[in-house]
Design a binder for these strands. Structure first.
Length: 689
DNA sequence: AGCACGCCGACT
DNA sequence: GTCGGCGTGCTC
């Protein structure tokens, strides 16, 4: 006869478990355990009929749930050192700030492979770890090191001096920011501490990895990005967590890598929108990096040639230490700006889809004759953004989205860039049978085609999301450009990032105007960053730098953005933008949150948000928060799902936070009274509104 | 979110 | 007679 649940002493544990927020289960769940486990311990717990991974958390002295009903944990994975207090604090803060369930976020940022393991499997992985860790040590030949410039060594000294604070390293392209990161990292590594480096995109990791590997021969470098295999992700993460890795390099999710000896955090290209997660928990890895720095008492270095206005503003107010590096290394000169006033160009030239003005074509021919390279930027892939029937006015609308389908000439398809629907392009108008369908506007494919006509014999290449779909093709195409096999390169913004083209003496923005008057309040900031970055592609070679040019074709030649760009004057641009933002009550002078709702029927989403607005307005916490009426976003329907969003705005971040926290439970309730609502989500500090 | 239970239509 | 549609409800 077996005694059911002997009165053995059972301790009460709070466990963070992956329960979606709409499950109505907040914070942590309570479980029983035979042994007392320290917070941060990975456990496996029963939830309903399932067994899920969880993390032991600090237990708030809340009401003790009916102890009889509590279930015991299934397993404690004590072979893994507990996730440190600083990590738990970071996750606790992030979950609260971005309005997500703690367990959902905490488990989501662990390597997916780790969540699946039981104690036995974990033991096995940990036994094998020393071997993988040994493989992390850089075996690259140590690169010869150039002496630091005065700006660089000043910056490095400042970073060392700042202690627990944030530095904004404002260095123009080519000023050698990477050298500063590495030198600052070297000092920290020499103290036996770890360094975390965040980059915006996977594409940029191999490059930086190579630089760090060459600078730190023998050091163990771990990576964290979504391009790794699950097994790699896990072993590199374990190396970070166990303090076996010296450097951790990765994309935004790396901000959550536990590092027991953390001594420095670097965020490269801190202005890059990729640091903001755009689905699920919409966190900003850059902002969390700053918070983590404070939490762990380590220096955070934010680097950019064109800082985000948020960071710049903080630097101006003395909250961040500004480290300016205005000079390019090796006599590199920034290219001079040529603004083509499109209002002065012959109509025939600009009317019918010709993207290029005569002066620009002339400049391209000059480069061609001299054997130099040119780069043309056009932020729209495909051949033409829309097809139109000349007889009845039919347009190539997507049946599932409120957007036009883009004409891709290469494979004769109409493609929706929102839902992915691709169909063969119709030979005649589907509505009236007219054979004359007109391609309106231009994308990179069409620009490439036009260049082929305008520059006979020139070797023209195109790099965009379509031309680089296959793995490794981006690298191959970039290599072709480097090897001089390309005269004119056409591409979207993806080529403006991080690649140096030594023989490039002309960079042109073909059609940047839409960003100037976009409804997206960050569009000018992004355009300026893109153009500065693109300009930085040219003129790195001192000999060629002198005749390097940045061209801009615009209908608004007097726009102050171009004046600032001509002087490469980020500070002036930022000042004027900040003035606009202040006048308009936008970040960094106000704090924003979006409440988004999705439904098959737009009216359902509308009603839900209206109810949410009423509920919010009735809360005492809404006192200093502006609640705007729900509106559809620019593209309101995607894949037959209608979207509506509501803006909340406040001068006080805390006030906004309090309102969101108070509103959340009400939103869960409202959901049940709004049948047909697909989902809702809160986006704190949204990039676009 | 999963994963149950639960109550109505076309098949071996 | 059962297999299975997804509506409703619960998970410490």
């Amino acid at each position: 006869m077996s005694a059911p649940s002997s009165p053995r002493h059972q301790t009460l544990l709070a466990v963070a478990v992956e329960t979606p927020q709409h499950a109505g289960l907040g914070g942590t769940l309570d479980y029983l355990s035979e042994q007392s486990l320290s917070p941060g311990t990975l456990v496996r717990v029963p939830l309903g009929k399932r067994e899920l991974p969880g993390i032991v958390w600090e237990r708030a002295d809340g009401p003790t749930t009916d102890a009889q009903a509590l279930k015991p944990i299934r397993q404690a994975l004590t072979a893994l050192p507990p996730l440190p207090a600083a990590w738990r604090q970071l996750l606790g803060f992030a979950a609260a700030y971005y309005q997500r369930n703690l367990g959902e976020l905490a488990l989501a940022v662990l390597p997916p492979e780790l969540r699946k393991l039981d104690a036995t499997q974990l033991d096995r992985r940990l036994k094998r770890l020393p071997k993988t860790v040994a493989g992390l040590a850089s075996t690259a030949a140590t690169a010869p090191r150039a002496a630091l410039t005065k700006d660089q060594s000043t910056a490095v000294d400042e970073i060392g001096r700042v202690g627990a604070g944030t530095c904004l390293l404002h260095g123009v392209t080519g000023s050698g920011k990477t050298e500063v990161y590495m030198e600052a990292a070297a000092r920290v590594l020499d103290q036996g501490r770890q360094v975390l480096v965040l980059v915006p995109e996977i594409n940029l990791t191999p490059q930086l990895e190579a630089s760090f590997a060459a600078r730190f021969t023998g050091r163990r470098i771990a990576s964290q990005h979504s391009g790794m295999t699950p097994a790699q992700r896990l072993s590199h993460w374990l190396a970070a967590h166990l303090g076996e890795a010296d450097l951790v390099l990765g994309t935004r999710l790396a901000v959550f890598a536990p590092m027991p000896r953390l001594g420095l955090i670097v965020v490269d290209e801190e202005h890059d929108p990729s640091f903001k997660q755009q689905e699920g928990a919409r966190y900003s890895a850059r902002d969390l990096a700053v918070y983590r720095g404070k939490l762990e008492g380590v220096t955070v270095v934010l680097g950019s040639a064109t800082p985000s206005l948020e960071s710049w503003h903080r630097a101006q107010r003395g909250q961040y230490t500004l480290l300016p590096m205005p000079e390019r290394i090796g006599q590199g000169v920034l290219p001079s700006l040529k603004v083509v006033d499109m209002t002065n160009q012959p109509r025939a030239n600009v009317g019918s889809g010709d993207a290029l003005s005569q002066p620009l074509v002339h400049a391209l021919r000059e480069r061609l004759a001299r054997g130099e390279q040119s780069l043309l930027l056009l932020n729209r892939r495909g051949y033409a953004p829309v097809l139109q029937c000349t007889a009845c006015g039919w347009k190539s609308a997507c049946p599932h989205c409120s957007a036009w389908r883009v004409f891709h000439k290469a494979d004769r398809t109409l493609r929706c860039h929102h839902c992915g629907l691709a169909e063969r392009v119709p030979r005649a108008c589907p509505d009236c049978g007219n054979l004359d369908i007109h391609a309106t506007g231009r994308g990179t494919e069409r620009l490439e085609e036009q260049l082929t006509e305008l520059l006979p014999g020139a070797r023209i290449a195109r790099i965009d999301a379509d031309s680089t779909r296959l793995k490794g093709s981006l690298e191959a195409q970039l290599a072709a450009v480097h090897d001089g096999d390309v005269d004119v390169l056409v591409g979207t913004q993806m080529i403006a990032k991080g690649h140096d083209f030594r023989r490039m003496t002309l960079v042109a923005a073909v059609s940047p105007d839409n960003a100037l008057y976009s409804s997206d309040f960050r569009a000018p900031e992004r355009l300026f960053a893109l153009l500065m970055q693109a300009a930085g592609r040219a003129g790195r070679d001192a000999a060629m730098g002198a005749r390097s040019e940045m061209w801009v074709q615009t209908w608004n030649p007097r726009h102050p953005l171009f004046a600032a760009l001509a002087r490469h004057d980020y500070a002036a641009f930022a000042a004027s933008q900040l003035k606009d933002r202040e006048a308009a009550g936008l970040p960094p002078f106000a704090h924003l949150a979006l409440l988004r709702a999705e439904a098959k029927d737009a009216a359902v989403a509308q009603r839900f948000l209206h109810a949410a607005a009423e509920a919010a307005a009735a809360l005492p916490q809404s006192a200093s928060v502006m609640i705007y009426p729900p509106v559809p976003p620019a593209v309101s329907r995607v894949a037959d799902v209608e979207r509506v969003q509501m803006l909340l705005e406040s001068a006080s971040r805390t006030a906004l936070q309090h309102l969101l926290a108070a509103l959340q439970p009400q939103l869960h309730q409202l959901r049940s009274s709004h049948r047909g609502l697909a989902r809702w989500a809160i986006d704190v500090d949204p990039l676009a509104i």
